[in-house]
């Protein structure tokens, strides 16, 4: 009996988790406009996209985009802090109307939520000393390159590196960057976020050699919220063309919105 009940609970829980029982609650644009507030889910533990300022208020790239989105909709923004694992359930259960939560656009997620056009992106690339001439993976041969052990950039570099590349694996981003800054290696596999953080201190000492992979992030709404999605897409389109996203990106990541985000659909 106990076993049966446990089995039932497990089944129910997994059914819930897979969204089989609870249907997604669509957000109606009219409801948002009449309420005068839009509830926006946002990460606060993912710098520099989502952080908390010294007063404990959500801040960062996502917060600026969220506020701009609310302005565009002509309503107040009510920012709801979410976490990586619970952000999609928050959206599907109607606790937030939209997610501006650095949600990477993937096939699996696109089956559960509706994505807007990309508004941000993270790219992994090989960076290095401006004096080193490397333009593609073949150029890595004979070079020492630092990566963070077991990271996306580790598998990215390991995947393309030709014979004779010396891949030096460090335990965290900080140590790998330290190896680059101290001159122990001339190249590093890193994300644009990490490089923007050290860009302020190093100026033009390092530049990007070639891209490894990139992931775009979209604003997400519940399936069926078509009017809202159209409005969000119009917002993203306008923010891209009038330079607003460039400005926000420049503020938080030290460079205008990358081209792979602008061109991705």
């Amino acid at each position: 009996m106990t076993l049966n009940r446990r089995l039932f609970t497990t089944l129910a829980a997994s059914a819930l988790a897979f969204g089989l029982v609870a249907p997604a609650i669509a957000a109606e644009l009219e409801d948002i406009e009449s309420a005068g507030t839009v509830k926006i889910g946002m990460l606060v533990d993912f710098p520099p996209f989502g952080i908390q300022d010294s007063a404990g208020k959500p801040d960062g790239y996502d917060a600026d985009v969220a506020k701009a989105l609310a302005d565009y909709l002509g309503v107040d923004a009510q920012i709801v802090p979410v976490t990586g694992p619970n952000r999609i359930p928050y959206l599907l259960s109607g606790q937030v109307d939209v997610l501006v939560a650095s949600l990477g656009v993937t096939e699996e997620r696109a089956q559960k939520v509706d994505f807007s056009d990309p508004y941000a992106g993270i790219s992994i690339a090989v960076y290095g000393d401006a004096s080193v001439e490397v333009t593609d993976a073949a150029g890595l041969s004979g070079q020492a390159i630092a990566v963070t052990r077991a990271s996306t950039q580790d598998s990215g570099v390991t995947g393309v590196a030709p014979e004779g590349t010396e891949i030096r694996r460090f335990d965290d981003d900080a140590t790998a960057v330290q190896a680059l800054m101290s001159g122990q290696v001339k190249l590093i596999g890193a994300s644009n976020i990490v490089m923007s953080q050290i860009g302020a201190a190093t100026g033009d000492r390092f530049d990007k050699k070639f891209d490894l992979s990139s992931q775009v992030q979209g604003i997400a709404v519940s399936p069926g919220s078509d009017a809202l999605l159209d409005k969000v897409n119009a917002f993203v389109e306008q923010a891209k063309t009038d330079g607003m996203l460039d400005g926000i990106h420049e503020k938080w990541l030290g460079e205008p919105l990358p081209d792979f985000v602008k061109t991705a659909q």
């Binding site: 052990r149 694996r169 460090f170």
Partner: peptide, 19 residues
């Protein structure tokens, strides 16, 4: 010594673990 990316038994283990 694996913290400075030197190759030793511990770093071989860490690489294997990462994979």
């Amino acid at each position: 010594v694996s913290v400075i990316s030197a190759n030793d038994l511990a770093s071989a283990g860490a690489d294997l673990n990462a994979r």
